[in-house]
């Protein structure tokens, strides 16, 4: 009884003083290994990023990152407990230790990174606010939306971003705001306004709900920065590294052309960068508490970043989002992973 009380009190103290909780007990990675399951906080359902499919399995770009971690740790992409979290309770769940990481379209902002006691382990999707208009309007850029009425959701940063954008470009506009995304898209479809705005990844999903999606186009302009990425809590640098380098390994694999399909050939490659990635040279995996073939496991079970992107949100999916900002830096995008060296 006494030991239980002591443990309870110590645990409560650790949980309340956010972070540091796991550092004293051999790290979160060791805890996850001994529990045999990774607890991953996902969204409550966002097409392409985290959504249960017909059989109830979670799929999506954010979910693939959890699967990659599970593959790297357990050589099995299914040893995950998914906890769906709403925007309200996601940070509390992470801080209290109920989830090991948060992978649910969370925008990296300074206040979250610092005062909330969190660490962003990278950016797995560069999002930004975009516009959708009717094709017959003949507009091909947001700058030509002068005088347009714009449908958006009330009380969001979206509304403020629109105001910023039009003010700074000295354009006239009229905002028509609604309480929910359902009403907003319905109002846009009924012709209440000329343009519809939300995060561009969401625009594609919303477009599918319109009667004739082909009549509408998403403008190429992005008027705000929304870097989305996986989040861990302060206080466990090793776990932070594991998450960060899992993401980086997927990016590096794409850059080096290592895919699920050609993995076996690549294991025989003489390219030193590929050898370091796949663990045939050096001990990079062991340095972060995993095995040296950690990246092999990730690619075998999940694939590289490009494969994950195409499967979940890209051309192979219903959303058909172009790589755009999320292309590799070698192809004009922003996805740039530090080298494994």
């Amino acid at each position: 009884m006494n030991t239980f009380l002591a443990a309870a009190l110590a645990g409560a103290a650790m949980a309340v003083s956010v972070g540091g909780a796991q550092a004293q007990t051999g790290g979160l990675l060791a805890t996850i290994k001994s529990k045999g399951v990774l607890t991953c906080g996902v969204g409550p359902g966002l097409a392409g990023f985290g959504i249960p499919d017909q059989a109830g399995n979670w799929t999506g770009l954010d979910v693939d990152l959890c699967r990659a971690l599970s593959a790297a740790i357990f050589n099995d992409p299914t040893k995950i407990k998914f906890i769906p979290l709403s925007s309200k309770d996601r940070f509390t769940a992470l801080q209290s230790g109920e989830v090991d990481l948060l992978s649910r379209t969370t925008t990296w902002t300074m206040s979250r990174d610092t005062s909330l006691g969190l660490n962003f382990a990278g950016v797995n999707y560069y999002d930004g606010q975009g516009f959708m208009v009717r094709k017959k309007l003949g507009v091909d850029s947001a700058i030509k939306l002068a005088g347009a009425s714009i449908c958006t959701e009330q009380g969001t940063t979206t509304e403020l971003n629109v105001a910023d954008y039009f003010r700074s470009n000295k354009l006239k506009y009229e905002v028509v705001a609604f309480a929910s995304s359902v009403e907003t898209i319905a109002a846009y479809e009924s012709g209440r306004c000329d343009a519809y705005t939300t995060d561009s990844s969401g625009l594609y999903a919303q477009r599918l709900k319109l009667a004739v999606p082909a009549d509408h186009i998403v403008l190429p302009d992005i008027i705000s920065k929304e870097p989305l990425g996986p989040v861990v809590r302060h206080g466990d640098d090793n776990w932070f590294d594991v998450v960060k380098w899992t993401h980086n390994a997927m990016l590096n694999a794409e850059e080096l052309g290592v895919t699920k399909a050609n993995l076996d050939e690549m294991l025989k490659s003489e390219n030193p960068e590929i050898k370091r990635l796949l663990g045939t040279e050096g001990k990079f995996g062991e340095a972060i508490g995993l095995t040296n073939d950690w990246a092999v496991r990730i690619i075998k079970h999940v694939g590289n970043y490009g494969e994950s992107f195409e499967r979940n949100v890209g051309m192979a999916s219903q959303l058909k989002i172009a790589r755009g900002l999320n292309a590799l830096w070698t192809k004009g995008g922003l996805q740039y992973a530090a080298p494994i060296r």
Binding site: D53, I83, L85, K209, A211
Partner: peptide
Amino acid sequence: IVGIFDFLRTIEATLVDPTWATP
């Protein structure tokens, strides 16, 4: 609201799925 998928929530979860996104 606490992230448990009851009957209504499973319906709402499939509503965002692009496989069946129709008007």
